[in-house]
């Protein structure tokens, strides 16, 4: 299974060369650290999906001595592994440019990434091959569309929320959020897994 995760590096040698300048551009533009962490985390896993949307790739992976369970697990675990690596590299880059960032920037950035991954990974399995870029775009739009009423709602009840946040300790808040994201991620994994088991290549 480690081989499946390592495969991404070989597959994306050239794209990885783009990785550093890509992040640097964001840093130099002065983008907020949260956004930089999010974009950096998305880079490798979603590039992999651009490859894996092809029927041929699935035929290859499934003809090699791997099980379908392993193939999906490698995607979900790989996303976390590459997220951690990307955050490491990005942190170093930020430090090198003397940009200030906090641990909560990392936490929120990775949290958002995991949520986004959890929502989009199953969609890749449902939609026909060749439409994945469209799927990403639509889910992005959908997310922003959903976030608007949520933001409105939050505005209306801002005081209550602030009160709630104030009353809850930071630890509880973070643990709660972590558990929530982990739960969503695991549910997403389960859904993708069961769809993938039934696929015909």
């Amino acid at each position: 299974m480690l081989n499946l995760i390592k495969r991404d590096v070989i597959l994306q040698k050239r794209q990885l060369l783009l990785f550093i300048p890509f992040i640097l551009v964001f840093i130099l533009l002065g983008a907020p650290p949260v956004l930089i962490f999010l974009v950096a985390s998305i880079f490798i896993p979603f590039n992999t999906y651009a490859y894996d949307e092809k029927v041929e790739t699935n035929i290859l992976l499934n003809s090699l001595p791997y099980t379908r369970t392993e193939i999906i697990a490698s995607r979900y675990l790989g996303a976390i592994v590459y997220m951690i690596l990307s955050i490491g590299v990005t942190s170093l880059a930020l430090l090198a440019f003397n940009k200030h960032f906090t641990v909560s920037d990392i936490a929120i950035g990775s949290g958002l990434f995991l949520l986004f991954a959890a929502l989009t990974f199953p969609l890749f399995q449902i939609f026909k091959q060749g439409y994945i870029t469209t799927v990403i775009l639509i889910s992005f739009i959908l997310l922003t569309w959903i976030s608007r009423p949520i933001a409105l709602y939050m505005n209306e009840h801002l005081t209550t929320i602030i009160d709630f946040v104030d009353n809850t300790s930071v630890t509880v808040l973070y643990t709660g959020a972590t558990f929530f994201i982990m739960l969503i991620y695991i549910i997403s994994w389960g859904i993708t897994h069961s769809i993938y088991q039934r696929k015909v290549f």
Binding site: N3, I10, L11, I59, L60, S63, Y66
Partner: peptide, 25 residues
Amino acid sequence: FVYDGNIFFEGLNLKDIKRIVAPAY
């Protein structure tokens, strides 16, 4: 296995494909 048509990552060279496939066996 040998299929009708290429199933390996088109953009890669044979050495890299070997690097991906070999560890599986």
